[in-house]
């Protein structure tokens, strides 16, 4: 079983890795690159805990092969903070208690960041539908939705 050599960019850094053809990007991130911030909640694209961006697109890394990363630019939760400064969404989630157990949080944050990049002024309904693929079982979503909207307002004002 020949491994595939992949050259890609992850969180702005050039990365090379070897993967098996059937390994998903999530497997590669977690098991090969030890970037365990992306979580496996289902492995079938139904929970969003493994969300990453590939180029300007939000995807489930469990539904992408590692081999497909060739030449792409991938961002994971590990790249969201800027040095020792948290991204405004990360900060807002902390301030507004928008997480409980925290397992869905990386995926939610990546998804919310992708939303605000496209739509800096989303309605509550737009946030809810955008994040419908990010399951959270702890919060009832209330504080997550509020934190995203409050952060969007802050970022528009800044």
């Amino acid at each position: 079983m020949a491994k595939i050599h992949v050259t890609t960019t992850i969180n702005g850094e050039p990365v090379e890795f070897l993967c098996e053809p059937q390994q998903t990007m999530l497997d590669v991130l977690r098991d090969e690159l030890r970037l365990t911030g992306s979580k496996e909640g289902c492995a079938t694209g139904d929970c969003g805990a493994c969300s990453v961006t590939v180029g300007d697109r939000l995807v489930c890394s469990c539904l992408m092969l590692g081999a497909e990363a060739e030449g792409q630019e991938i961002e994971t939760i590990e790249g969201m903070a800027d040095g020792d400064t948290l991204h405004p969404l990360q900060q807002k989630f902390l301030e507004e208690a928008a997480l409980q157990c925290g397992i869905c949080t990386p995926g939610v944050l990546i998804a919310a960041k992708a939303l605000l990049a496209k739509n800096p002024d989303p309605s509550e309904s737009e946030v809810r539908y955008w994040l419908a693929g990010n399951l959270c079982r702890c919060t009832g979503y209330d504080k997550i939705i509020r934190a995203v909207m409050d952060c969007a307002a802050d970022m528009r004002g800044a």
């Binding site: 694209g45 969003g48 697109r57 939000l58 995807v59 489930c60 998804a111 994040l131 419908a132 693929g133």
Partner: peptide, 9 residues
């Protein structure tokens, strides 16, 4: 079809 994430692919 599917979530925002699924739409990306």
């Amino acid at each position: 079809i599917g979530s925002t994430q699924i739409q990306g692919r």
